[in-house]
Design a protein around this nucleic acid. Sequence first.
DNA 1: GCCGGCAATTAACATGCGTTAATGGCCCTT
DNA 2: AAGGGCCATTAACGCATGTTAATTGCCGGC
Lengths: 253, 253
Amino acid sequence: MSPGPSTTRLLLRLGDFAPLSPDESRSLESAVGPARLYRPHEDLTREGEPAAHIGLIVSGFAYRCRVLPDGRRQIVTYLIPGDLCDARQLLLPAATHTVSALTAANVATFPRETLLSVIERHPRIGQALCWLALLEEQIAREWLVNVGQRTALERLAHLLCEIFTRMQAVALTDGGRCELPLTQVELADTLALSTVHVNRTLQELRRLGLVSLSSGLLEIHDFDALQSLAMFSPDYLHPGSQRVERRRRLVPG
Amino acid sequence: MSPGPSTTRLLLRLGDFAPLSPDESRSLESAVGPARLYRPHEDLTREGEPAAHIGLIVSGFAYRCRVLPDGRRQIVTYLIPGDLCDARQLLLPAATHTVSALTAANVATFPRETLLSVIERHPRIGQALCWLALLEEQIAREWLVNVGQRTALERLAHLLCEIFTRMQAVALTDGGRCELPLTQVELADTLALSTVHVNRTLQELRRLGLVSLSSGLLEIHDFDALQSLAMFSPDYLHPGSQRVERRRRLVPG
DNA sequence: GCCGGCAATTAACATGCGTTAATGGCCCTT
DNA sequence: AAGGGCCATTAACGCATGTTAATTGCCGGC
């Protein structure tokens, strides 16, 4: 299915923080355990359960979701290939959220202890994983801004910009297209809208000629327009490096 | 003003993850640099600026805020005494958000390099700080759920529960009371409501006899009722230890 | 080739919350 | 004592989005 070793896309991501040495890359690769195939809607980790291993999405999609006692749902993250399922669990004894497969998903696993010892030998890997966690936090905050301040149209546009950009970072886009197997119910639970309004809003985006989304395929016809409609700035997806290098040049010359 | 060393409340917080040894505590205490007094609305850190030191709120309140190009504002965090201003900056070369003082605030500073070397000597401190960051992430996600899924009344009730609980953790409550110098405009930017509706909602909470909030003082008259109205569960404020132990009992017993 | 179920679509109607704007209280300044 | 600014409060009205519910299309199973 997926070409190359299962860590390919993770390494791609970590390189965004700091390129790993061949030695470090090899260590990480060799720490990866067996993969497992999940079916749609199957749980990868369940809230409160202790986790002996850290999942790595190799292919397919997953999401993290919070459910209120009366059934209201809020999806708080999407996980795409190259994402770790819950690096938090390296530090915490149990998972804090339930993560479920959105589609069929192939998930490799790092045994917790093995990964911990790799980190001990290669502190940069620990830092890189920590950086990944910070990135997730940035995304969570941006979602808060999205749901809190943007209109339905902007909100949807912003989500599509974000996901597309993340897919690009792991080389899963093809021109302006990428896979995006989200149902309108899931979009609604992500954007804090009703499904009816998601439908209206999607059609509006289509009518404007910006994007189309159907049968699991996202096509962006005019990214610039979409981005400016959404007030999307990709900065938060690259905390650190690029942003700073730009700035560094300002300081000593 | 504030009794004892400036790290008192931080240590109180970190102990929630893992009690630090006297040696570790002393190292951390000795790493703290000079304090600075900020005036209301003054910026502690500005987005994108490299930061040579990590702030620690000793007294007063601060907030992190994201502003959209057209002026819409979303407050994404409140910082209370004992909170680090941006531990992220240990890893990242620049701040990712602007943090501003809400009230007059006394902020101690850890020189970045000094703190890094303390962590090197005491890995547990690094872990504890990392745990603090995870906690912040948990809070961010909970705010997303709050703004996305709860009604105005529930939302406000939830925020008050959270802040009160956090204040309790650093021993800044007195019975059902604590300081909370939030204006209705700030509440609005936090909860993604209009100020008018915040006003209506606050009155409703008062009318129900649950809380009163005026001249910077929060009084909770019936925490249990408030908590159940808000569907507030303090679990997310204690990621890790306690949660798991409770669960463990359910399994074999 | 029919049936069942899920996802998308549409329409009609309802409402929680936003907007605008006016008023009053408080505190600080002069 | 008068003036100005910030904040809280209130009222009237409007709108973005929710709700309910019916319809359609699609796909897989039998």
